[in-house]
């Protein structure tokens, strides 16, 4: 649904992203891995049209991204940035309700969707609280609820791009958030998620993209990508890869 062909992004004279091909497909969660500065966030910005492309193109449902009318694009593509700078005392449901701004579905429907999206990220109890009084992790969940509400309930043709949605979350919520993302994909949407935790990636992603110095080092299923050699090459980290004793996905243990 979201396709990128031969993406190149330049910052000054140097290319920070080169020759990246990517295909986000319906019902699948694609994880992006890579060391700090590998170009993960740059890739995400390029995919949503935030950064100008030096070469290549991004197609959303077969149509060049820049040709989409703003509001229609917002109904098909939602983006969660790494940091938020919101500095005003909105209530939680108002922040999540902003996800409904591209629509005119009416107050009643919006209120229901906001409540459902908050419940999906295990934050129903935050209803009525002031955003500024929330902790970092709670804010992150509220923003995830906002982008989920923007595409609610999710379906064929809709794409969600998430930049480190679990970076500030406790262990339980890292899982519950990625389960919510998984549930969104199961409705037919396509998801790209930047994660640092290799085991979370192994468990929740269908496809993985390993970035190294602005290029794709390896891509494929978690079994194909999460092997000791490429991980050593990219992260400089020695790991053991075993099978998860209960689930079939790879389990990565630092040596």
């Amino acid at each position: 649904m979201l396709q990128a062909r031969q993406l190149e992004v330049r910052r000054g004279p140097c290319a920070v992203l080169r020759g990246v091909d990517l295909d986000l497909r319906a019902g699948r969660v694609t994880g992006v891995l890579g060391a700090n500065g590998a170009g993960k966030s740059t890739l995400l910005s390029a995919l949503c049209g935030e950064l100008p492309l030096a070469a290549g193109e991004v197609l959303l449902n077969g149509r060049v991204l820049a040709d989409w009318p703003d509001q229609l694009r917002a109904q098909h593509l939602a983006v969660l940035p790494q940091h938020s700078t919101l500095n005003f005392a909105f209530r939680v449901e108002e922040v999540v309700g902003m996800g409904r701004l591209p629509y005119a579905t009416g107050r009643q429907v919006d209120v229901e969707i906001v409540a459902a999206a908050l419940t999906a990220v295990d934050s129903g109890h935050l209803l009525g609280r002031s955003y500024l009084q929330l902790s970092g992790g709670e804010r992150q969940r509220v923003h995830l609820a906002r982008v989920l509400a923007q595409l609610w309930p999710g379906g064929e043709g809709q794409v969600l791009l998430l930049d480190e949605p679990t970076s500030m979350l406790d262990p339980l919520h890292q899982h519950s958030i990625l389960q919510a993302v998984r549930a969104f994909a199961d409705q037919g949407g396509a998801v790209l998620v930047i994660v640092h935790d290799l085991n979370l990636a192994a468990r929740y992603c269908d496809d993985l993209l390993l970035l190294h110095k602005g290029t794709v080092f390896s891509s494929g299923s978690p079994d194909q990508v999460l092997r000791a050699e490429p991980l050593h090459e990219v992260f400089g980290l020695d790991v053991l890869v075993q099978k998860h004793p209960e689930r079939d996905h790879p389990l990565i243990i630092a040596r």
Binding site: C48, E50, D70, Q71, L72, R73, A74, Q75, L77, A78, V79, P81, S84, T85, L86, N87, F88, F90, V95, M98, G99, L101, P102, Q150
Partner: peptide, 13 residues
């Protein structure tokens, strides 16, 4: 108020 990129992603010029 969410941020310029966020507003753009929500479909505003």
């Amino acid at each position: 108020l969410l941020g310029e990129s966020e507003a753009r992603h929500l479909g505003f010029a």
